[in-house]
């Protein structure tokens, strides 16, 4: 595992050349939807993400019919909010996850879930490629870390995100101390968090360096 922030530049990839480019590819499609209302890009995104959104929603307990309705709403929202997507702050999958999660809650509660206020600057008109790539890389590593979790821990994480159990219930049922889950998750998150902090820093006012 690499040290945080040791290298951000492109590295030669030998065995898995596709994953990072996938994220970068979908991110370009979504930016194209946001900036140019590109219908072809939208259709490509639909084919890629609609079945995954539906599968995810069904995993969380929605009936196939509800999951279908919710998924279609999510795709419409994706179109309407695409211009607010910032590839330096979330991968497409992460962004889609947040929309699907919120939409599902809206449907169940029949009320709009409160969401944090948008950052005042919004996405930059010309997103920094390097920022976006670094975030995609960090997110990919986070996903790898999740995939490599011991089975038991991974199941707990899935139950937290897919089920409606509380975190303390998880701890009680398995006898696993909550701190252990949390510290593991945080180890994985920390890397992403440092990347995020590096992202926001240049955007806050500061004195010129030279």
């Amino acid at each position: 595992m690499q040290q945080i922030g040791s290298t951000k530049g492109p590295e030669p990839e030998i065995f898995v050349p596709f994953q990072t480019t996938d994220d970068a590819y979908w991110s370009r499609q979504l930016v194209a939807v946001g900036q140019e209302r590109d219908k072809h890009a939208f259709e490509a995104l639909f084919r890629q993400f609609a079945p995954r959104i539906k599968g995810f929603l069904m995993r969380t307990g929605l009936s196939p019919a509800m999951a279908e309705d919710c998924m279609q709403d999510v795709m419409v929202t994706l179109w309407r909010k695409a211009h607010m997507y910032d590839p330096a702050r979330a991968t497409v999958t992460t962004w889609v996850f947040t929309i699907a999660r919120n939409r599902k809650i809206d449907m169940i509660r029949k009320a709009r879930r409160p969401e944090p206020e948008d950052l005042p600057w919004g996405p930059e008109p010309e997103p920094e490629q390097a920022d976006a790539l670094a975030l995609q890389e960090d997110t990919r590593r986070l996903a790898e870390a999740v995939a490599q979790l011991p089975d038991k821990q991974r199941k707990l994480l899935e139950r937290a995100y897919f089920g409606d159990v509380t975190h303390s219930e998880i701890a009680a049922e398995t006898g696993l101390p909550l701190g252990t889950i949390k510290s593991r998750i945080r180890l994985a998150i920390d890397r992403l968090r440092h990347a995020m902090e590096a992202e926001t820093r240049p955007k806050t006012p500061r004195l010129p360096q030279d």
Binding site: P51, G55, A90, L142
Partner: peptide
């Protein structure tokens, strides 16, 4: 955003449904 990214990783792993 980090916790959201975790959710994204799990969504990516969910079995796609037609």
């Amino acid at each position: 955003a980090g916790f959201d990214a975790l959710g994204g990783a799990l969504l990516e792993d969910a079995e796609p449904m037609p």
